[in-house]
Design a protein around this nucleic acid. Structure first.
Lengths: 148, 148
DNA sequence: TAATCAGTTAGAATGAGTCTAATCCGCAAG
DNA sequence: CTTGCGGATTAGACTCATTCTAACTGATTA
């Protein structure tokens, strides 16, 4: 079930949008609501289907646009795995992704700063990296908390 | 210029193929030759075009098939970045990839075992990972050795 | 020689994502 | 009010990497 945005989440959305010169629109609110409702790294199609329950006229193109806008203003992260459909994730903290080979589910893995540092340290001089993507592929015992 | 496979490389190819119940074919040799000639993480299309210089009748589907076979018997690795075309890399040692934002080139980054270990250690209990993919995105001073 | 079977081939099909052109909508100016 | 403007939204066409299909090839076995 998709519940409405809390006041806090609404402000968060508005602030991030306005900060990068974008507007709050009903469609963007709907898409953002869907993302926060189930933090399960949905694909565009999944977002689309869920959002339609709340806003039946919503078009797929708009979902693509909204998600792109959110990525642009740092509200969500894209998650790619192999060449499967892109997934979206509203977790802002630096984290890696663990993909369950069996179920296909994606779990967030917290990334301690030491690990980030040791990773950055393996770059030869002259290499300057902004983004580090880390993804595990394997099997996870189903004992899930919230990050599936 | 694409030179022929050394005897050593040929044996390497044959051994890996036979070990997984596959045959050595002229097409597979051609594709493998191309991969070893320039270790620049080519896309399927690039492999196709280069291989055609040597074997004009070669079809794109066969290049896909060959590369899939090679991946299956551990001869090469697939490299995916965002949703761009898959690239292929004959470097067998564990390594990360650094993608230059400007040029699009992919560089291999050696992965010391300590770093691998510290990465594996951040997985919560119950998570068992077989493959870890690490990719950097950033800018690299052009002072290239061989891994571009 | 016939049968078999993996590998190869050309071209069709798929599907995620992008592009385009038309429309909508909120708002500021007249 | 109503007109015009610009960004957002929409439906549908389009792209393009990859996969699929069905026919063909060529070596090996019966």
């Amino acid at each position: 079930m998709i519940r409405n945005l809390t006041e806090q989440d609404k402000e968060h959305l508005q602030e991030a949008l306005v900060k990068s010169g974008q507007k709050v629109t009903p469609q963007r609110e709907a898409v953002f609501t869907v993302l926060l409702a189930e933090r399960d790294h949905p694909t565009v199609d999944e977002v689309f289907n869920r959002a339609r329950e709340v806003m039946p006229g919503l078009s797929l193109a708009t979902v693509y646009n909204c998600l792109e806008t959110f990525v642009g203003c740092g509200l969500v992260r894209q998650v790619n795995h192999e060449r499967e459909s892109t997934r979206y994730c509203p977790n802002l903290a630096p984290h890696a992704h663990f993909r369950d080979k069996e179920t296909g589910q994606v779990h967030d893995i917290e990334l301690p700063p030491e690990v980030m540092k040791s990773l950055r340290s393996i770059l030869p001089p002259g290499f300057d990296s902004e983004v580090i993507e880390i993804s595990f592929l394997g099997r996870a015992q189903a004992k899930d908390t919230h990050s599936n």
